[in-house]
Every structure is written in structure tokens, then in C-alpha cells.
Amino acid sequence: MRYLVRRLEFFVVTLWAALTLNFILPRLLPGGPEVALLTRFHGRIQPATIKSLEVALGIRNDQNAIQQYLSYMGNMLRGDFGVSLGFYPQRVSHVIMLALPWTLGLVGTATLIAFLLGTLIGILGAWRRGGILDSVLPPIFVVTSAFPYFWIGLICILVFAITLGWFPQAFGNSSEVTSELSWTFISDVLWHSILPAFTIVLTSIGGWILTMRNNMITTLAEDYIKMARAKGLSPTRIMFQYAARNAILPNLVGFAMSLGFVISGALLVEIVFNYPGLGTFLLQAVKNEDFSLMQTLFLLITVAVLLAVMVADFLTAWLDPRTRERG
């Protein structure tokens, strides 16, 4: 129970920190938010837009800082993120809904594949210490993890799209295919997603392999593994039901914690491939100085990561009695 309270406190504080950061940052601009934004947008936008920006950032001249903060928090909690400046007069939430399915589909699937494949390779590598999976792959992935995600994407484009011409270079689908629920459209989308998905898997799989391998090595030294061996159980059974089952717990937590990093890396991959997901929109927002969209995207990604961590937390508490007792 104490554990639950501590975790809840953590989630609430994190959410509050992200929201407050969004509130404070525009106010740190030289000359305060109104002056800074008016200068930046001078002559480019209508008074109505400024009004909407005031909603998104909580800037109201007739209120003091605390009132502004409260009404801003109210807007955020109600899900009122104001109007996007880059896609004026669309609402921020509408713009995000355009991008979200693309990112969820691409990054979600690619991350899942990387996690499953990496964990499996890690299990097998630790099981056969000194084998090919154990001695060759970890150093390779230590080196590849040092390359920027987006650069690996550039190289994939150069090799597979430009030189070989196997896959399209950019975008989520071809412009000549209409968006409808037909086989042509779906296969076209899949066709476009292969290269970015491959990039994300390639760059994120190393972490799973290393973590799982190291956990497995620690677990394999436990007495109950020796016991299982002494009982003459089949190696497969020991590997998966005795060792991997216990070693996978930290990987689950790691999965949630590093989701933030995966999303971060995937944002850049999206940008490289011009994929119509959150990353590309985030870059657009930065280029257009579309602060309301930018901040909402930051908030959305934070909330997504928090949710993932929460799920992993409760999963661990459910799977591992020790965490519950420790409290």
C-alpha cells in the first residue's frame, strides 16, 4: 500500500512538473511572453491568433501570475490546448490526432518487435556463453548504439531507397493512392513503413539484448538453476521457465523506462523519413514557432511514457512478490 502511494505521488509530481514547465518556459523569454511572441509574430498573425495563443500558454493581461497559472492548469486538465499557429485555425488536438495513428502504428510495432527479438537473443546469448550470439552481437550493438538513430535512417535511405530502389524514400503513403480502407492503401502504408521500422528496430534492439543477457547471466548463477539442472530437467525448460522468467523482470521495467528514449529516437527517424507522425509535426512546430503545438506534443509524449511506466510498475508488482513486500 505504501508502495502504491509512493508511485502515485511520483506520477502526479511528474505530470505537474511537465505542465508547470510548459507554463514557465514562455515566461522566461526576454521581455515576457507577450512582448517576445508579438515581436516574433509581428505582422504575421491576426489578433485572434494571439488570443488563442494566450489560451494555450495561459497568458492573460487582466490576471496576476497565480490566476494565470490556475486557469492554464484548468485548460490543460480539460484537454483544451488552444489553436495551432502553424496549422491555423485548426485546434492543436485536431492536428495531433492527424499524426498520432501514424506514430502509434510505426513506433509501437517497431518497438515491440525490437523488444521481443532483443529479449530472445539476450536469453539465447546468455544461455550459450561464448557462443556466436554471446561473443559477436553484444560488442556490435555497443558500437551501433553509439550512432545517431537518424543517421542510421539516412544510411538506410541511401542504400535501400536511393541506390537499390527497393523502398520509398519518404512519407507515409504514396500521394496517388487514396486514403481508404482498401488493400491497395494498406499495402502501400506497410510498404512505406518497412524502412523506418527497420531503422528503429536496428537502433533500439541492442539495449534489450544487453540488458536481458546481463540479467540472465546473473540469474543463471542462482542455486535454483543448479537445482533444476541436478533434477535433470530439459535445457529448454530451465532456460525459459526457470531462468528467463526471473531475468525478464528488470527488462520489463527497462522497457517502460526507456520508452521515452525510444520515442525520442523514433521522432528523429520520423523526421528523416518525412513520416507524417508526431516527430515530423514536432519539427514543423519548432520551425513555425508554433509553441502551442510544440508544448502539447511534449506533454502528450510525457503522459504516454508515464502511462507505460505505470503499467510496467503494476505488472512488476503483480509478477514479483518481492517488490510488494519491500513496500
Partner: peptide, 18 residues
């Protein structure tokens, strides 16, 4: 823990953009 979980790249982008 809060800093650990806030996604780094979006945070960096927001900070650097301002």
C-alpha cells in the same frame, strides 16, 4: 525520478526552441 522519466528529446527540443 521525475527527470529520469520525462522524455529527453522532446524536452530538449522545447528548451532549445525557446
Amino acid at each position: 525520478d521525475v527527470f529520469l522519466v520525462i522524455p529527453t528529446l522532446p524536452l530538449m527540443i522545447v528548451l532549445a526552441a525557446y
